[in-house]
Design a protein around this nucleic acid. Sequence first.
DNA 1: CTGAAAGCGCTAACAA
DNA 2: TTGTTAGCGCTTTCAG
Lengths: 336, 336
Amino acid sequence: MASSLKDVARYAGVSIKTVSNVVNGYVHVSAVTRAKVQQAIAALNYRPNTAARHLRQGRSGVIALALPELRAPYFAELAGFVVEAADERSLKVLIEQTDGARDRELEITEGVPGHLIDGLILSPLALTEDDLEQRTDRLPMILLGEQITDGAADRVVVDNVAAAEEAVAHLVSLGRRRIAAIGAQDAAPGATARLRLRGYRQALRRAGIAYDPSLVIPVEQFHRHDGALAMQGLLDLAQPPDAVFCFNDLLGLGALRTLLSHGLSVPGDVAVVGFDDIEESQYSTPTLTTVAPDKEEIARTAIDLLIKRFSGDHDALPRSVNPTYRLICRESTLGG
Amino acid sequence: MASSLKDVARYAGVSIKTVSNVVNGYVHVSAVTRAKVQQAIAALNYRPNTAARHLRQGRSGVIALALPELRAPYFAELAGFVVEAADERSLKVLIEQTDGARDRELEITEGVPGHLIDGLILSPLALTEDDLEQRTDRLPMILLGEQITDGAADRVVVDNVAAAEEAVAHLVSLGRRRIAAIGAQDAAPGATARLRLRGYRQALRRAGIAYDPSLVIPVEQFHRHDGALAMQGLLDLAQPPDAVFCFNDLLGLGALRTLLSHGLSVPGDVAVVGFDDIEESQYSTPTLTTVAPDKEEIARTAIDLLIKRFSGDHDALPRSVNPTYRLICRESTLGG
DNA sequence: CTGAAAGCGCTAACAA
DNA sequence: TTGTTAGCGCTTTCAG
């Protein structure tokens, strides 16, 4: 059995309160007493019981991070940063995977973990704005990545329209005119896809290039496989594109694979741009030009917003933060 | 303020115990009472308080998974499976990153989270067998990946020697004779590297190929960068190798990049084998031959062993389980 | 500066 | 089948 405050108190010959004071770094404790208590703590290998503390103060020091899937590199990298940022604030992170399924996401926003956690960082895929407004749970929540409107909760999300536009403008500046887009999704989910598509169209319009719907390829998921498949479809076109903007790096990497296996040159025949800047994109052949959101900033911002929520301004208006991003130009557009 | 058992009891006009019985699915409750209680629960949006339950029963339903870093794809994929397996057993998973630093690992084995978790799954990099024997904490722990000997705790680990030998034997069977190894590590950590090296040497011996130390390249970390660098070194040799066995896929992918950027053909000039079977290896150009441990089995086994530990046989002898693995041959050795 | 005692929400003996 | 009660380990008034 683990030792409790009481045990330490008895061992040190002081009261429970005194031990508690020492443990919690309360200042008004005489040096002698403090030393005595600390020695007792060491002797008994005492460790404060989180459960009791949690029960008493209503704070667990644990937050949840809910994301589609850890095996997607973008989310894995982001999760790594979130855990790191949380650690700096003495918070522990519990991971939930939603698979982007709406019912899983709903369940989680409804506070499943039952008072286990102090707050939630959610990266939703399928949740609608309505779902969020229905929400009864008072658990502080930060949304990563956007729905169309904002309103129901704090959000941290890059400006997808602007970022996508910048990526496509880069292709235009390279002289490309027949620019495809891989990653469209029109189902209720896929807000991200819709915004990146909007950025794509905006860039074309600015460049005076006509919008050609046959160059916009929808996908099931944002995985390599879907990217490879979509690229295949584009190559089968009577007039294949000379550039592709992929809505994430995984799609881009899949597209790359299809292009190379057809003996085409990248960027010679087709230039490719991705989105996310996962580590792999620095090492692919060719390396992948991509929009790089500052993941560390996203993680830190999310944690800080969350902490603010459960330390006081529970009722402040929802905030929305746009983390910085930059276009990183690599071989898949510039050549090597 | 969230509602408690007491609130529900009052609302339903029954005692606390009855509500508790309903909540916990106790059978001997009359249908009428049950209905009444359930309605009250719904009306008050009651959710059992995890902290109180935890305090009372000494079980939190939360386990920790401690691994070097989430951004390494192998660990991300593994973590995904662990979270999934835990979910099936109604356990939540809290993630800790160690960066492979010994003091972080030690800290974690010493039960930092303070009674917060029911058990620990640790993938150590730097911890020594001695460290583990010193361990005072009684928290159930499962080790992922091995140290040299076994003894201090349950382990789930592929047979690295046999797997490495099989990988190298595959290269030999392809007619390669000058086979390099990337990933050696001689510091106290790096048990995995040592075992894979042993398998490599065993395969050479069996094939009657002399061991050439200049073909064994040490690395700092198991990252793409280190693999690329190591491969560079090998190409600078008077007699470069005609095959490379990389101790993980990331090293292999890095090596691939160096080879291709030098205009060499894989596997024409140099064949490459990795270890881990991360998703990326199915999509690289060329795709990567690799040893594929069954990650799902590893995760499930770890969870099950852990559950056994904290449900009864706390004191059974340490078990060691070897999950299955298989060599997946792809373009980097067979060509495509 | 230190002690005594109440109570967070729940479960598990025990009683009825 | 249902109710009563003690107590898990801690923090937090309130006294001293």
